[in-house]
Design a protein around this nucleic acid. Structure first.
Lengths: 109, 109
DNA sequence: ACAACCTATGTAGTAAGCTATATGAGTAAT
DNA sequence: ATTACTCATATAGCTTACTACATAGGTTGT
């Protein structure tokens, strides 16, 4: 399908969190436990890669709710595909069992 | 329990692979799909941290089996504890569902 | 004989992740 | 009124992970 590159475990977690309805950086930190120094740079890279799109919350809204303005993120179609592909790949810890993955064995560095 | 530090996702995967009977670097690469440039440095750090112990295969054995000598690794008791603690923490992708982890919320950076 | 491949470990250099800190406005308590 | 806390985004600097390459002996194929 995609001739594109693999995404990291952390990137996949972030995309999945977005897919599950969490919509801004602080929210993702809360849901995942990842620190801000991981989440914000990762979101910037994901946007550069075209996997998410962002827009700032209107200042009026933020002021009305008495908090700093949020930056909202949405998954793109490519982002959704990359996430699904990654979920397929990062199943190791999930099963917490022998997992004798008889890997497809492509190239090895 | 342990006043010790968190280990990374990759480190946890490697410890778990060792716990499941894979015993040297190449074997771990095979089982996990992680590249050599990740696995060998990680094993060195895990040994420095006291989570694994290593010993070289005897040359006679390797020659008999017609291959390069392997470096075998074993989990220490601390390594086993660190792994179990990490498995508890890295469950996110596993469930592939909303996972509204109402995190203990300690300090945030 | 040489190419291509397999097992096995490793490093140099770059990209990504984490710790600690900063900023700034709001609320709450003393 | 100053301390402390919450929400929210962000970066500097160190650590970890990945890409690409190196080494080296063994086997297999042409």
């Amino acid at each position: 399908m995609s001739p594109k590159s693999y995404i990291s475990y952390t990137a996949a977690v972030i995309l999945q969190t977005l897919a599950n309805g969490y919509r801004h950086g602080f929210d993702i930190m809360d849901a995942t436990g990842l620190p801000s120094g991981t989440v914000y740079p990762a979101l910037r890279r994901l946007e550069e890669a075209g996997f998410v799109e962002s827009r700032w919350e209107k200042e009026i809204v933020a002021r009305r709710e008495q908090r700093p303005p949020r930056k909202y993120y949405d998954l793109t179609e490519e982002g959704k595909e990359a996430m699904e592909e990654a979920v397929r790949r990062y199943r190791l810890l999930a099963q917490s069992a022998p997992t004798p993955i008889r890997k497809p064995k492509p190239e090895r560095s």
